[in-house]
Write a protein that binds this DNA or RNA. Structure first.
Length: 638
RNA sequence: GGAGUCUUAGCUCAAUUGGUUAGAGCGCCGCCCUGUCACGGCGGAGGUUGCGGGUUCGAGCCCCGUAGACUCCGCCA
């Protein structure tokens, strides 16, 4: 069926210049220039499935003979002439079967169905005037088929591949079909582009890509580990790494100086739209580097990624905001600064209030704050405000959500009757309270008020569609995180970042004095539009300091030796000052794709229960396998 | 562990106040059709309304339970 074709004539291939499809092909990622020359000169097409991709042919290729292979994207069978949109990874090309020219081929084409895999050979022709399809990159040409080979027939797909599919369950069950959809292919291409830009950029900056073990040790703090039994060491377990944290620090002790890895990480926690049990981080660590240098490196990396993956120039350096300011003004350590609705302190205004609720909060050392939902009065009826209060109570554990709704000059509120005229006037002035606005109050301890109003702020933005249609890319460094946080559950101090994070030099006195709550860390998060892209820190490199920190975290000497002995010992052999960062690759690609779940940018993700619907993983295993691993299950078979 | 939303044909969705034989578009199958690109025309197949129970003369719709999907809280150093 496959015949020789003009394009494979070396003579012509040399002379045809710009109009030769091989030059076009040379630009296609499928074919390198060297290969196209080799292929065109040496091989006959009997040895190849295709001479070019389905997105490569243009008007200037008219007259060339080509061989294409791909999937039948759609067919338009007119009884006589038949049109097939042939699809491969790169795009679509219209193939025409004409009975008057190739009756047997056209006859065979009647039997083609969607997703059949075929190979065609034919001649590129310009489309009839007026029948060009501007929606297709190849829409000015078509290929008149002179030969057709059906490489594989396809069953009818369980869902359409050419439109949006809502049923994610079904998509994940047939992920290999879902991946054929242009949207998914684009997402994975973009993911590749991000990874490639990352490798290029970090390589150019002297970083070495080094792999660290997947079979590693359980982490005493942090997320639940995935455990892997060791057959050779009965009763012992590996853990899949939650992050390559300790290894990358040990690489610094090992003198590798600049390390990165596009690292798979594993956490056995509940899933979310932006959380999978296995995910990928761009993991970076370097020696003799300062906080500012890491931040500027990452700014450069993100600039490069957005330029090469998205064609967007992002301004650098990113603004910086302290954790304390972020919590104070926006009630979040990853504030979305694309909109205002800032949290404003009213504590001084209500200093002498007679309103019992505020009075007792203030007497107890709490604060009064509020946000102004500008123009939300129309969108928030009394019933809805009641629902918001219910939401705040049940989901956020707040005592309530006081509000004032200003509609037609009237202050509608259950609490405003307790305010004095002076308080009302000062309140209105500070909050720029105008007709149509709704004020939400938080009265509690500082942290609780920040948490609640931070969440209310986001819901207000959602209600008022403050970010809808926005193309703004608002990058931000949040810096000076607290080092430690008291955990009432464990009745002890826990690391906010992780136990290897360096305290700020100027706060070392506070650490010595045991004033743990006020010690700040040399830790930083990079935030984009309210999403945490990544975080890092300068680490502790001194054995004594690390040991002291472990002590503060409640890890006694014996446990330190047992769990972190290797690290402490390493630090005693001349560990260089070092620090790093990790960026969530999935989240980054998700934002670049405009997707609302990282499942959209992972080839084979798990569903909400951690199940791969395509392979049915995880599965139960034979008893024999468990015995081999010296493991018994307590699960009763149903 | 908790809260919410959802589940009707292969897919996306309808179905009035609880009332006849549960409909439409797309897809699929058959026939016709030589310039379409969301091809067109004619015809056809396709349903245990997630599952189980209850109320009722009568349930896709109301009630209870259960399963699953998704979103969120907890959790995620």
């Amino acid at each position: 069926m496959i015949r020789g074709c003009k394009a494979f004539n070396p003579q012509e291939s040399r002379c045809a210049g710009e109009s030769n499809p091989f030059f076009e092909r040379a630009k296609s990622p499928l074919f390198t220039p060297r290969w196209s020359w080799f292929v065109s000169c040496v091989l006959s097409n009997a040895l190849m499935y295709r001479s070019t991709s389905c997105n490569s042919l243009r008007k200037e290729h008219t007259g060339h003979s080509v061989t294409l292979a791909g999937w039948v994207n759609s067919r338009r069978d007119h009884g006589g002439v038949i049109f097939i949109d042939l699809r491969d990874r790169e795009g679509l090309t219209q193939v025409v079967f004409r009975p008057e020219e190739h009756p047997q081929v056209a006859e065979a084409a009647h039997g083609l169905r969607g997703e059949d895999v075929i190979q065609i050979t034919g001649t590129v022709v310009g489309r009839l005037t007026g029948s060009e399809n501007l929606k297709l990159a190849t829409g000015e040409i078509e290929v008149i088929a002179s030969a057709l080979t059906v490489l594989n027939k396809a069953d009818v797909p369980p869902f359409p591949l050419d439109s949006k599919v809502a049923n994610e369950d079904l998509r994940l069950s047939y992920r290999y079909l879902d991946l054929r959809r242009a949207e998914m292919t684009q997402n994975l291409k973009l993911r590749h582009r991000v990874a490639k830009s990352t490798r290029d950029f970090l390589d150019e900056h002297g970083f070495l890509e080094i792999e660290t073990p997947i079979l590693s040790n359980p982490t005493p703090e942090g997320a639940r580990d995935f455990l892997v039994p060791s057959r050779l060491n009965p009763g012992s377990f590996y853990a899949l790494p939650q992050a390559p944290q300790q290894y990358k620090q040990l690489l610094q002790v090992g003198g590798l100086e600049k390390y990165f890895q596009i690292a798979r990480c594993f956490r056995d926690e509940d899933l979310r739209a932006d959380r999978q049990p296995e995910f990928t981080q761009i993991d970076v660590e370097a020696s003799f580097i300062t906080e500012v240098e890491i931040q500027s490196l990452i700014e450069g990396l993100l600039k490069r990624i957005f330029r090469e993956a998205k064609g967007v120039e992002i301004p650098t350096p990113f603004p910086r905001m302290s954790y304390a300011e972020a919590m104070d003004r926006f009630g979040s350590d990853k504030p979305d600064l694309r909109f205002g609705v800032e949290i404003t302190s009213l504590t001084d205004i209500f200093q002498d209030t007679q309103f019992k609720v505020f009075r007792s909060v203030l007497d107890g050392g709490g604060v009064i704050k509020a946000i102004n939902a500008k123009g939300a009065a129309g969108a928030l009826s009394k019933e809805q405000l009641k629902k918001w209060e219910e939401w705040v109570k049940t989901e956020l554990g707040a005592k309530g959500l006081a509000y004032i709704r200003l509609k037609d000059g009237e202050w509608e509120s259950p609490i405003v009757k307790f305010f004095s005229e002076a308080e009302k006037a000062a309140l209105a002035a500070r909050m720029q309270f105008e007709d149509g606005d709704v004020l939400f109050f938080g009265a509690d301890k500082h942290q609780a008020v920040s948490d609640v109003l931070g969440r209310v702020r986001l819901r207000v933005a959602d209600l008022l569609k403050l970010t809808e249609g926005s193309t703004e890319l608002n990058f931000l460094w949040v810096v000076d995180f607290p080092l430690l946080q008291f955990s009432p559950e464990d009745n002890g101090w826990a690391a906010v970042h992780h136990p290897f994070t360096r305290p700020k030099a100027e706060d070392m006195g506070l650490l010595e004095a045991g004033d743990y709550a006020r010690v700040r860390a040399v830790a930083y998060d990079v935030v984009l539009n309210g999403v945490e892209l990544g975080g890092g820190s300068i680490r502790i490199h001194e054995r004594e300091l690390q040991s002291k920190l472990f002590g503060v975290l409640g890890v006694n000497d014996e446990e330190q030796q047992h769990k972190f002995g290797h690290l402490l010992k390493a630090f005693s052999f001349g560990a260089p000052p070092h620090g790093g960062i990790a960026l969530g690759l999935d989240r980054l690609v998700m934002l670049l794709c405009g997707a609302d779940s990282i499942r959209e940018v992972i080839a084979f993700p798990k569903n909400n229960r951690g199940v791969d619907l395509m392979t049915q993983s995880p599965v139960s295993v034979e008893l024999r396998q468990l015995r081999e691993l010296s493991i018994s299950s307590t699960v009763k078979k149903a």
